[in-house]
């Protein structure tokens, strides 16, 4: 590292992000090939969540340590009051620890500083068009996102990479204002049209989601709106006219993506809900297209 970079690294925040996973090469999280960082922790509690272990942060109760069949979990400094240490080399990803966690959380989180993450991004930079931060709910770790993307956008060797956030839209306007200078776009989930449906599915109201959509659209930073279709549960079909009206008023560059609910990984009553088939998606897509919404992005696979 040259001296300029060394000085620069010293200025980076020392706080670490809780990361549940990093994927080096993704084709479905924004334009082109993307390095995707999944942050741990979410403020929604969706019935249909596929990765419920990413909702809560580990509270280091240590209950999982003895359950690990390959001794990949231990106390960090051999005292039962410290934090749980996860040895990635030993882990065989059997997920026994997830199944016994009383908080339905996970001891398998990484902790990355901005400098750590920049190293990883540089290692992959030849192969990617950009970086997407997803979750959990990414924006719960707003300062990390802001610092990381600011660092990317000011580094001559990385600034060509597009920086995207994948969010449930619950961030406040002032929060978005902090991010806007450093992001190229955001992908926002609209989980239901009616307030009551949204509350039932996510445990939160959707007032802020619409505020986020409006703000991002006005700032030309709304890359994609995602509708997760759960046949018979979400209200996109019953509210099709109002929904179509709303989507049509978004700037034409905004991608409208339909996602198909699948029930694997789900732990709530939603486990028994019927998965969304290609036919279900095509039906919804047809209704939106008839009302002048489009072009629509449909799932590449139904798995």
């Amino acid at each position: 590292m040259n001296s300029h970079l060394a000085t620069y690294a010293e200025k980076l925040p020392q706080t670490k992000a809780a990361v549940s996973k990093v994927i080096n090469f993704s084709c479905v999280d924004g334009p082109g090939s993307r390095l995707v960082i999944f942050l741990q922790g979410c403020n929604y509690n969706c019935l249909n969540c596929h990765n419920p272990q990413t909702i809560d942060l580990c509270d280091n109760c240590g209950g999982c340590i003895s359950s690990c069949p390959v001794q990949a979990l231990s106390w960090a400094d051999n005292s039962t009051s410290s934090s749980v240490k996860w040895d990635t080399d030993l882990c065989i990803h059997c997920d026994t620890c997830l199944s016994i966690c009383p908080k339905q959380s996970t001891p398998k989180t990484y902790h990355y500083s901005v400098a750590d993450m920049l190293l990883l991004i540089r290692k992959n930079s030849l192969f990617i068009n950009g970086i997407t931060i997803s979750g959990g709910e990414a924006t719960l770790q707003l300062n990390f996102i802001k610092s990381l993307f600011e660092a990317v956008k000011t580094a001559p060797d990385l600034q060509h990479l597009s920086c995207m956030v994948d969010s449930n839209g619950s961030l406040s306007e002032s929060g978005w204002q902090k991010l806007l200078p450093f992001i190229d776009g955001a992908m926002i989930d609209l989980k239901a049209w009616q307030q009551a449906t949204h509350l039932w599915i996510t445990g939160r109201d959707h007032h802020r989601v619409f505020r986020s959509l409006a703000l991002l659209a006005a700032e030309h930073k709304l890359y994609e709106v995602r509708l997760l279709h759960i046949p018979g549960k979400t209200d996109f079909e019953s509210e099709i006219d109002a929904l179509a009206d709303y989507l049509k008023k978004l700037p034409p560059a905004v991608r409208i993506k339909l996602n198909a609910f699948q029930n694997h990984g789900v732990t709530t009553e939603a486990k028994t809900w019927k998965a969304c088939t290609e036919q279900d998606i095509k039906q919804l897509a047809g209704q939106l297209s008839q009302r002048g919404v489009g072009p629509l992005i449909l799932p590449a696979v139904y798995i």
């Binding site: 084709c27 090939s33 993307r34 590449a300």
Partner: peptide
């Protein structure tokens, strides 16, 4: 490459370009 790349040929292009560069 998993089939999600079918709707994102730019990702294939970037991967290929990276490989040749390396």
């Amino acid at each position: 490459i998993d089939e999600t790349v079918k709707s994102n040929p730019q990702a294939m292009y970037q991967l290929c370009k990276g490989a040749l560069n390396l």
